[in-house]
Simulated assay, not measured.
Amino acid sequence: MADRVVQTAITTQGAPVSGKAAVDLVHDLLRRQILEGRLAPGAVVSQAQLARDLGVSRSPVREACRLLESEGLVDARYNYRVQVADFSLADLEEIYASRLVLETLAVSLKLPKLSQADFTEMNEALGEMRAGAAERDYDRFTIPHDRFHRFLFIDFGYRMSRQIARLVDHAQRYRRVYTTQTPMAWDVVLAQDTRILGAIRSGDFTTATEELARHLASTALAMIALIDPGYEPLLVRAAMKQVCRDG
Rank of each mutant, 00 (worst) to 15 (best):
D3G: 09
V6A: 09
I10E: 01
G14Q: 05
S18D: 09
G19S: 07
A21R: 12
Q33H: 15
G37I: 10
G37R: 02
R38W: 14
V45P: 06
Q47R: 14
L50K: 01
R52L: 15
S57A: 08
R58S: 08
V61H: 07
E63V: 10
R66M: 11
E69A: 15
E69N: 10
E71G: 05
D75H: 12
A76W: 08
L92T: 00
E93H: 07
I95E: 03
Y96A: 04
R99I: 11
R99W: 02
L100E: 02
T104N: 04
V107Q: 08
S108L: 10
S108Q: 12
K110D: 02
S115W: 09
S115E: 11
A117Q: 12
D118M: 11
T120K: 14
N123K: 12
L126G: 00
R136Y: 05
D137H: 09
R140F: 03
F141H: 01
T142V: 14
I143V: 15
H145D: 13
R147I: 07
F148E: 04
L152W: 00
I154W: 02
S161Y: 06
R162C: 07
R166H: 13
D169Q: 13
A171K: 08
R173Q: 13
V177I: 14
Y178E: 07
Y178C: 03
Q181V: 06
T182K: 03
P183E: 01
L190C: 09
L190M: 08
D193I: 00
T194N: 06
L197A: 06
G198V: 12
A199F: 11
F205H: 13
T209V: 12
S218D: 11
S218L: 03
T219Q: 08
A222R: 02
A222V: 01
M223I: 06
I224N: 03
A225P: 00
G230S: 15
Y231N: 01
L235S: 03
K241E: 15
Q242N: 13
D246E: 14
D246H: 06
